[in-house]
Computed example of a mutant assay.
Amino acid sequence: MSTDSSLPPAQLAARSGLSIPTLHYYEREGLIRSVRTAGNQRRYARETLRRLAFIRAAVRLGVPLADIRAALDTLPEGRTPTPADWANLSARWRVRLDEQIAALQRLRDDLSGCIACGCLSLETCALHNPDDGYAREHPGGNKLS
């Protein structure tokens, strides 16, 4: 990476909308890379902007950074993701997102029922004891003392 086409942290932060500490954190986590100048200052390739856009989009989907790093590690030689890469990788995350949406919809629906009921029973309430999970975890009942 030549220094004339690279960006110092302040410029990368301004252009990406991320803070400098976030850039340094992403670098420590292996999501982005920098090189050091003769004066030991960080410089980032301009392509890092696309990589950061990819990371931000994935984070907004709720993808953990470890999963984002694993996805980026599948690219040849740490290449910046292309639109085709995004389509491929995001398709994997779509299943998880659909599951999260379904779980949130069930929670919302249970909440509506709970508001109408008002019981807040620890035995039968779908919010406090979804799918009677307490009975599965504690067979034979339990007495509060």
Rank of each mutant, 00 (worst) to 15 (best):
T3Q: 08
S5T: 14
P9W: 01
L12S: 02
A13E: 06
A14Y: 01
R15D: 09
S16G: 05
G17L: 06
L18W: 02
I20F: 04
I20M: 10
T22A: 15
T22D: 03
Y25R: 11
Y26R: 01
E27N: 03
R28P: 10
R28V: 11
G30E: 04
S34R: 01
R36W: 05
T37M: 07
N40G: 04
R43V: 08
A45L: 05
L52A: 01
A53W: 00
A53C: 03
F54M: 07
F54D: 03
I55F: 00
A58K: 00
V59Q: 14
V59T: 14
R60Q: 12
L61N: 03
L61R: 04
V63K: 00
L65Q: 02
L65D: 03
A66D: 14
A66V: 15
A66N: 12
A66R: 14
I68Q: 00
R69Q: 12
R69P: 06
A70V: 07
A70P: 06
A71L: 08
D73Y: 01
D73W: 02
T74C: 06
P76S: 08
E77D: 15
G78R: 05
G78M: 06
R79C: 11
T80K: 01
P81T: 09
P81H: 06
P83R: 06
P83I: 05
W86R: 10
W86G: 03
N88W: 12
L89T: 01
A91G: 07
A91K: 07
R92D: 09
W93G: 08
W93I: 02
W93C: 07
W93S: 07
R94G: 02
V95F: 02
L97W: 12
I101E: 13
I101N: 07
A102E: 15
A102L: 06
L104V: 11
L104A: 14
Q105T: 15
R106S: 11
L107S: 07
R108N: 11
D109E: 15
L111C: 13
L111H: 06
L111D: 06
S112I: 15
C114W: 07
I115L: 15
A116Y: 02
A116W: 05
C117R: 07
C117Q: 10
C117V: 06
C117H: 10
G118W: 07
G118P: 06
C119G: 09
S121L: 05
E123Q: 11
T124K: 09
A126P: 08
H128N: 11
P130R: 01
P130V: 05
D132R: 12
G133H: 06
G133S: 13
R136D: 14
E137L: 15
G140F: 12
N142R: 14
N142Q: 13
L144V: 13
S145H: 13
